[in-house]
Design a protein around this nucleic acid. Structure first.
Lengths: 343, 343
DNA sequence: TTGTACGCGTTATCAA
DNA sequence: TTGATAACGCGTACAA
């Protein structure tokens, strides 16, 4: 039925191993037979059986991707397709295939990872959702299986290769930008405090305030889901304060959209009455009213670099643990304005 | 190193084939040995090598997904992550794995598909981007490989199992909604005319107008990219017309966002000055100003049904060609208003 | 430079 | 109900 290496060998009057060598581009083979074999392969429409190859060579040229649980908010956020695109490009560029897995429950995901890894379906893994108690990471570490994390791992960040932004600095810069515009009442609207992104960005926010000798007010720090509703709730609460903030730092564009929406509802004008700085700079941010000033964290590159570093690690097991920092870039649009400092 | 079926067999004092039968849950095996073998598997932490299994059984329990070319607009559109989520769920539910492929050029994608299929890495394929000249479809048809298309295939729609909406009816209903509100000058802002979605929706639009004895005006029909910029351009052109439309049908929420943006720029108020109906009903549509009245096409289900029908087809080769229609639902928000008919 | 022979880990066939 | 044994298709050490 399907054409195998043997049939090619027979027709080309060589041994199967010779055909195998031609496929592998083994240098110790004459140009003549190489051509001959290749011609037969063409004629027969030969394609190697990847399962057989993997079984024998113990490599799959496939990398696995653990996605956020389906139903998770992350799925809704445009962040996801963009990293995926980046990952996909990086993988493709090295001729690797990509296999992904989801699950509604954590243990489902864990099972799926075990299947992939123990079933020898992948040579390495990319993890998107590092949690504080991450069984997947624990497991992969234990068996010493190649993997990289996108974002900062909650545990052992020094011992795990990961691709991340310098979120502390990025948020510090964003905060300083607002301070330079004269803002003193600056609120932070972040995601769940268990997430490392949140921790780092919050820390950057605090650093900037401290450096400027501004007080850190608890009531100005909000933690909501990474979704637009989250943004809306945060705004309601902040605007109910006696002393309203004059500027908002929102850790996600999608959330910022909710923020803008709510502000509009409340009749508060951006940037006249309040300034908003957002994060991620997804396409949406230039679409909003007004277009959002946003910190571009180069999501695409986050993905491609994850693939690349993982594949390096797979192909060279002595590759050291790395922390890859993707640069960020502040993109000014029209959601912020200067304010007269009230002393 | 890795624990194989043989070692399990040895420790359990049975033959490898017996172990294999236990794994496969073969009924012709005594409960006693079944338990014994399972216990040993536990102890040794045995996990089957899926490559070996696939090689032998000629099945992979994996389905392949062809994504739009990376860099394609579709990637930016929230439609994509949602179908993906649906597909993923459907696949997961049947214990299948998911492998995906992209490429920047069409021939790259084609190569990747060949690899997957001929390399015996997948049992079936889901195609997202049916084009008019689709080499992938031609190929899969020719070798009689199981696949389903999401959306209507440009060629042989009767002979290809596909999951789609009734786009003609959906758009007809949307158009009729506007007509009932009193609108007579209704414009259509669609995507590329080569896409079947566009064709079908345009046809629904025309049918509704004809049924209402309204003229079909060429200048009211715009074809732009499925992106927000597309929406913006269309608006510019439509609003430059002597007789401006009083209502807009936009075939995509993302595009509709661009439309709203442009209208705002031009000082045209929605829904007071112009009504807008959008399609897809992604999360964004309730976030816009004003919230968009949109036709929900149940993207998630489009994905899950694609997976399910594909797996059915894989597991039962006599499964007939099917056309699966996912229902749509009109979601009224606040982007439309009644208009006094000017006779 | 090429061929022989075996192993990769499973499933499947045929006996027992 | 269970056990040998032969595929599955490919890579590779070793020999030639």
């Amino acid at each position: 039925m399907t054409v195998t290496i043997k049939e090619v060998a027979k027709l080309a009057n060589v041994a199967p191993s010779t055909v195998s060598r031609v496929i592998a581009n083994n240098p110790r083979i004459s140009e003549a037979t190489k051509r001959k074999v290749k011609k037969v392969m063409e004629e027969l429409g030969y394609h190697p059986n990847l399962n057989a190859r993997s079984l024998s060579s113990k490599a799959t040229q496939t990398i696995g991707l653990v996605m956020p649980s389906s139903g998770d908010v992350v799925f809704q956020n445009p962040f996801f397709p963009t990293v995926l695109q980046g990952i996909s490009e990086g993988v493709h560029e090295k001729k690797y295939a990509l296999q992904m897995t989801t699950g509604s429950m954590d243990h489902e995901i864990f099972e799926a990872v075990i299947q992939m890894v123990q079933g020898k379906r992948v040579d390495g893994m990319i993890l998107l959702n590092s949690k504080v108690e991450d069984k997947v990471i624990e497991y992969l570490r234990e068996i010493n299986f190649p993997f990289v994390v996108i974002g900062k791992p909650a545990k052992y960040p020094e011992e795990i290769t990961h691709v991340d932004n310098d979120n502390v600095r990025a948020m510090k810069e964003a905060t300083e930008y607002l301070i330079h515009l004269g803002h003193r009442q600056i609120a932070f609207v972040g995601g769940r405090p268990e997430l490392m992104v949140t921790v780092d960005r919050l820390s950057g926010y605090k650093q900037a305030l401290e450096d400027a000798n501004l007080p850190i007010k608890k009531e100005y720090i909000k933690h909501e889901e990474f979704l637009r509703e989250g943004g809306q709730e945060a705004v309601s609460e902040l605007m109910a304060l006696k002393q309203r903030p004059t500027a908002l730092l929102v850790v996600d564009d999608f959330m910022a959209l909710g923020v803008l929406n709510k502000l509009d509802e409340l009749g508060i004008k951006v940037p006249e009455d309040i300034s908003v700085v957002s994060f991620n700079n997804i396409l949406l941010s230039e679409m909003s009213k007004p277009p959002l000033t946003s910190m571009d964290i180069n999501i695409l590159k986050l993905g491609t670099e994850a693939s690349r570093s993982l594949i390096e690690k797979i192909e060279n097991s002595t590759e050291p643990t790395k922390r890859i920092i993707i640069s960020h870039q502040f993109v000014e649009r029209s959601s912020c304005s200067r304010i007269d400092t009230v002393v």
